[in-house]
Design a binder for these strands. Structure first.
Lengths: 194, 194
DNA sequence: CTTGTTTCATAACGCTGTTATGAAACAAGG
DNA sequence: CCTTGTTTCATAACAGCGTTATGAAACAAG
């Protein structure tokens, strides 16, 4: 029959362990300083685990990013009932809590590093709460009646840019980013108001 | 005395050649695929040149990024007389012409790769045309009278985010980015109008 | 206990940035 | 004209990376 050979250690739970460890190392040291040897050591296994469970470093990072998008989506969904302004506030809060991960997700740092992109469906899902909020505000007559998806992408871009600039530490080093962000959120709201 | 020893080849002109070659390779293959050996070979020299002229790979990339900021500043300055909308159009045009470089400059990809940041003064200079345009529009009573620098940072962030999302290829893959961008520029203008 | 099979930690490989080394290239002095 | 001295930089060596190949470890069956 099928001799069971030696017991399996590269299990699904190790997979999750590797994801968690990698996300932690990315957020602590930045993606550049994360090596497979460190990840494996921190998870108490060897580098082969990454290859048997993910396929390689780029797939591991992609999985981490996809998890990031899911966490981000949940954060957005939780803030959905607070309206567009609430989504904006939650957006920045999540980004500041996961700075390196956010850059990995949106900053193109991943694509710059290795040849991989976030899974399109997962990334698109993260936008759903915003699109829904836009559509809702349009139905209530409070927002310009342009295509909801287009308005959502534009608003997302505007908000993303503010957060991205803050994280990249480009611009005046003494800037009061919270104040800038709030003023910008108001301006975005005015800009798209019906 | 001072025996002149063998003639110097690591000159300032080779420095510029290395900068040009690196910028070209970055824009063609992305930062991940640029190696010092390739850069040196393309410039007809050896890797030592990078170390004697720049200090290492991170300083070379920093110099390329600083050059990028200067080029970007010039592009903005040239569009300054066309007003805020002109600056916005020029912004996206420059970014699309220098995709990889733009990501290196603003996307945090550089910080993710190696431990270096763009020279603060050079990056701040790139914002000067926008700040001037904001101040001008405020003086003419066409813009909200908030602190010019804050308004400029907010607008910059909004515009940057749109371009950044487009470059990162996050969001709907069939999006008409030009249309989104134009609509967003109008919304930004409305949002900050007096 | 031996055999057979599967699993995965270890070691080896090619490539990277970086550093060390020594040959190359000339000016000066015999 | 050749030796010597000095400077410069291409080459080779090194440590570390992601990845791949290998063979010992761990068990079921005979």
């Amino acid at each position: 029959m099928n001799p069971m050979a030696r017991p399996i250690v590269h299990t699904d739970s190790l997979r999750h362990e590797l994801l968690a460890v990698t996300a932690e190392l990315v957020d602590r040291d930045g993606p550049a300083r994360v090596t497979l040897r460190d990840v494996a050591a921190a998870a108490g296994t060897s580098t082969s685990a990454v290859y048997s469970l993910f396929g390689g470093k780029s797939q591991l990072l992609t999985a981490v990013v996809d998890d990031g998008f899911r966490s981000f989506h949940d954060s957005q969904a939780a803030a959905a009932e607070e309206g567009l302004q609430g989504l904006g506030v939650a957006y920045r809060a999540w980004a500041l809590e996961h700075r390196a991960l956010y850059r990995l997700m949106f900053g193109g740092a991943l694509a710059a590093y290795v040849d991989c992109q976030p899974t399109p469906d997962v990334a698109a899902d993260a936008m759903v709460p915003l699109i829904a909020a836009v559509a809702g505000a349009q139905a209530a007559g409070r927002l310009l009646p342009a295509p909801a998806e287009m308005v959502a992408v534009a608003i997302w871009g505007q908000v993303h840019g503010l957060v991205s600039l803050e994280l990249a530490e480009v611009g005046p080093p003494d800037a009061d980013w919270a104040a800038v962000y709030n003023a910008a959120l108001d301006a975005v709201a005015r800009g798209w108001a019906a």
